[in-house]
Write a protein that binds this DNA or RNA. Structure first.
Lengths: 211, 211
DNA sequence: GGCTATTATTGGACTCAGTACAGTATTACA
DNA sequence: TGTAATACTGTACTGAGTCCAATAATAGCC
């Protein structure tokens, strides 16, 4: 039961030790009140070593999601030319989601209120959203033979990435007993691919096709 | 020709003087190499006064867009219940865009490379994207009588806001001779409302309706 | 075993954004 | 003229992120 600090800690890599130390401290003292100094100390490592593994304190909140985006980029890079682009994105996103276990929610999304992070979480999380948009946009551009700064390509990539964010967020917020992430991602993507007019029927009017 | 500093500067409000001083300095020295101290000094005001008007250095990049989001929120708040929600959002966004003159591009979007800001621009810009998503989501929730953390509502709001970002970005990047922002916004919104499958036909296949 | 090049880690000094707070000037208003 | 509210300033502080030079650890090779 001696969990004081570095002494006695299993000798895994510094990176993992930093992640673990951070998770503990964020829960104890909130994200905002935890300093990098403290994290490094508990991991039994110097403050500078922290910056060998992470570019910023907020990176610690998004380890899980960053890995997911890397996965997505890899999946998309192996898609051969000629394959329908939107379906390929959807399939890749679903495959990535399928591998996320129920317990692997990003720190930022679960702890959020507990950790007193709302602002910091948000802006650092949005950096991930942008990176995912880039990944998707360059794939769409390649696959559809359009320039990568094309308005349609950028709009579609942003819309897809936005929908994916909504899915992850909603899933994380549903807490224990939530279903599987895949289902959330599936619903969110259906909205953007079939169109908002269809997906969000207005209670005051019949659906467009019925008018 | 005497543009040294505060002395001789027109006595407008401190806020405007800070904005002007910042714009000058960002162009001269890039955003990253300009300190708040310098901005305040050129505006003829103390460093602390800066923080009376702006919460962060990066706010200076987004003055124009922040005003646009405020406008959007106001427009939406006056929409009576029962009006079709998606059309209302589209109309409000178009009205806001219509009022943005050709010269009123946000600093962040035009100067970008000149100012050596890419990273900082991006993450601070994304905070605006999130705020706009919130505005749209709470409107949609109210209008469609759904909870505001509903997956469909969040996905739609994120998708719309993402598409709007793409529109503003593409418009700004097109430089002198670009058309009017309204046209960009209109195209981008059409994509998400009619659906990506329809809007982005795949060159390898006929459109879904034709298959 | 020892030798060497590379990589991981460290200490220390620094810049600057952002916060807190108390004190002073300025303005508005009676 | 006095008084209250508001705008501004000085000072001091915390903590993130950067830079650089020095040292420890490690891997590869003889």
């Amino acid at each position: 039961m001696d969990s004081r600090n570095s002494v006695g800690r299993p000798r895994t890599t510094s990176r993992v030790m930093l992640e673990d130390a951070a998770a503990e401290l964020f829960l104890e003292n909130t994200y905002a009140l935890t300093t990098i100094e403290q994290i490094a100390q508990r991991a039994g490592v110097s403050r500078n070593t922290f910056f060998n593994y992470f570019g910023a304190k907020s990176d610690l909140l998004w380890v899980e999601l960053d890995a997911g985006i890397d996965r997505l980029a890899e999946e998309l890079s192996t898609v051969p030319p000629g394959v329908p682009a939107l379906a390929a994105v959807r399939d890749a996103a679903l495959r990535v989601a399928a591998d996320i276990g129920v317990d692997r929610v990003p720190l930022a999304l679960t702890q959020d209120d507990v950790m007193g992070t709302r602002e910091e979480t948000r802006s650092s999380g949005l950096v991930r959203l942008a990176r995912r948009s880039d990944v998707i946009a360059s794939f769409l551009a390649r696959q559809l033979s359009r320039p990568s700064d094309d308005l349609l390509v950028l709009s579609a990539a942003n819309a897809i990435s936005g929908a994916l964010s909504a899915a992850w967020t909603a899933w994380a917020r549903d807490g224990i007993g939530r279903g599987h992430l895949v289902d959330y991602v599936s619903s969110a993507l259906e909205i953007v691919s079939t169109g908002l007019e269809v997906a969000l029927p207005d209670p005051t009017r019949p659906a467009p096709s019925g008018g």
